[in-house]
Nucleic acid binder design. Sequence first.
DNA 1: GATGAATGAGGCTTCATTCAT
DNA 2: TATGAATGAAGCCTCATTCAT
Lengths: 199, 199, 199, 199
Amino acid sequence: MAVPSRKQPPGRIKIMQALRLLMEEQGFDAITTAEIARVAGVTEGLIYKYFKDKRDLLYQVLEEMFEGVILRIRARMDLEKDIFGRLHAFIDETVAVYATQRVFARIILIEVRSLPDFFTSRAYGCVRVYSRMLQGVLEEGMASGDFRQDLDVRFLRDILLGAIEHTCLWGVLFHRELDVAGVAGQLITVVREGIGPST
Amino acid sequence: MAVPSRKQPPGRIKIMQALRLLMEEQGFDAITTAEIARVAGVTEGLIYKYFKDKRDLLYQVLEEMFEGVILRIRARMDLEKDIFGRLHAFIDETVAVYATQRVFARIILIEVRSLPDFFTSRAYGCVRVYSRMLQGVLEEGMASGDFRQDLDVRFLRDILLGAIEHTCLWGVLFHRELDVAGVAGQLITVVREGIGPST
Amino acid sequence: MAVPSRKQPPGRIKIMQALRLLMEEQGFDAITTAEIARVAGVTEGLIYKYFKDKRDLLYQVLEEMFEGVILRIRARMDLEKDIFGRLHAFIDETVAVYATQRVFARIILIEVRSLPDFFTSRAYGCVRVYSRMLQGVLEEGMASGDFRQDLDVRFLRDILLGAIEHTCLWGVLFHRELDVAGVAGQLITVVREGIGPST
Amino acid sequence: MAVPSRKQPPGRIKIMQALRLLMEEQGFDAITTAEIARVAGVTEGLIYKYFKDKRDLLYQVLEEMFEGVILRIRARMDLEKDIFGRLHAFIDETVAVYATQRVFARIILIEVRSLPDFFTSRAYGCVRVYSRMLQGVLEEGMASGDFRQDLDVRFLRDILLGAIEHTCLWGVLFHRELDVAGVAGQLITVVREGIGPST
DNA sequence: GATGAATGAGGCTTCATTCAT
DNA sequence: TATGAATGAAGCCTCATTCAT
């Protein structure tokens, strides 16, 4: 997977890096192709050699990052034996990614939602893979009796994803630091035991 | 409710209605001022008599809707005696709003996030009020011993808000129906008891 | 002359004052009718009750001020017996006006030049009267033999007017103080004796 | 002279020429970007590839012309041996420029004054250079004892510049012919000897 | 693989002005 | 005398995109 970028033309690489760089500071809409080209040190025209349009560039950047993220999470989960460990690994690693890879977080949490054609892009495939990983854990836990079985697994999945995203969102929006262990820990606690008084 | 908007110039009202109407079908960016004016039956210039710019119009539309939403939720919560009832009311009513007021949901869940100046707008004040309502319930529950006290109340609040939003998001994005009672019910269950095997 | 503004409707007065006030700080083009109305405390519509259009307002403001200026200069000149005294009075008083009445100076030195219809306005009549006053002095001086006679009186007039205006211009443009006596004195010296080595 | 503008993109050249052409007949404000583009035979968008905005275009046109003017004046002055010759050359050449280069005259005498950001533009640098040339002559004359020394050199400079400009202004405003030798000659006479009766 | 000049569509916004009340 | 809602024309400018070299 994730071909080691062998043979990638330098122009293409520079363009993708330029967008990533610019998105550290600005939203996608605020970034112009002229700016991307300037930062990349190429001409605007070259962008269209490698990318169908400006959004395609965004999607490809996202895809590349997302592949790395998925590998990371999978690797981390594979180390865990029990089901709660794997769930914790998924959550913790996701939060860690949002905390450290701000551009990735920006794109996935903010930019992409208002772009209708995202959901037919290859990058969206990554979202499905990612989402399916969590769903897999949940199904497994239900099957094994470790998790309660009276819930719709997709609802449950969305609840978890939403909880993760929202706790990270403000950090991303306002460039605030994120307490990874704290967020992940509290989330796991709520999910395991609920908010009723600890018994 | 919804103050009879005394003295509001008709043009202003028509413009706001036009945007709401158009946003049933398209994203904010895809809507042009020309289109708004045409649907409202006024000239483009009039928009700028009442609104600083196109985004200001969006924020004012959102604010107006949000005020109604807040009133609705508050009214509903005031009917409940116990703390879990109030929590349930908040969640259930929020989901109901997302399910029925698609434009409101669109704006708050999707459009607004990529607009940096939203967070300095008056409409954002509504978000804070709304968010504070939930936080109030949580604090109350912690103080009374009904909720566990080993969690950061703001984390908890964000977990809940995220869970609500995400479960509604896909319905909003793809114009799917939303099973209000189902979503709210499952969410409350998770929150109360966690996903551990039902005892 | 210059009717003591008897019976002038208050709205009209307020509008003219508003423009004068605003022109202390901004150029005419940068000032909008909306701003004028706001400062005057009237509605935009009222402006068009009293003035044909925005430029007409400018011209009437200028005319009113110019009438005062002409009276001042004339009064001052009438005190002088000899021809050089009158010339000095004209120059000195003009510089004094530019130094103290910045709005007047702004309009006459800057704004009005790019407005083609100014030269058919009543305010332009004031310019002619003013200009004629200087020309009168010069003609008188030539006739009496006090001034050299080998020059075209209109060229001479323009040379003097230009010298006055330009020495004041930068003060007006950049809100700098103006050394009235200095400017007028040096000007008179040059005009009387030239720049050849003092004999 | 007038560097062969090597490598200047043709579009850029055509745009600048178009503005010069249009300003023969109309004021800057009356000229629209659409008109400029039409006359240049390019699209409006291209204007903004080469010029920050419409005013920037004006300033660059002015700068280009002003550079030529300065070269002309300097060349002419360099031919003169004595100080009065150089002063005369400066005045005469300036008047000649105003008489023949109407667009240049228009811009410098009329348009530019009401544009606040002109004074921070590169074109304004030319004004300073030009103005400094005259001041240099005056300082030289004072140092050598050819000119009287009891005057502030900058006042004197402004008096001369104003006299030149004003005598040319009406010609420029009303498209009248200008008697170059006459204007320059009379001006020099006044300046040398004053208006006192010829001795 | 890369350039860079040029396009073109249309977006947002401004503002003087009018008119019914 | 004054209001204020509404107009309408057009202006400036942006920016993704193309194409010949």
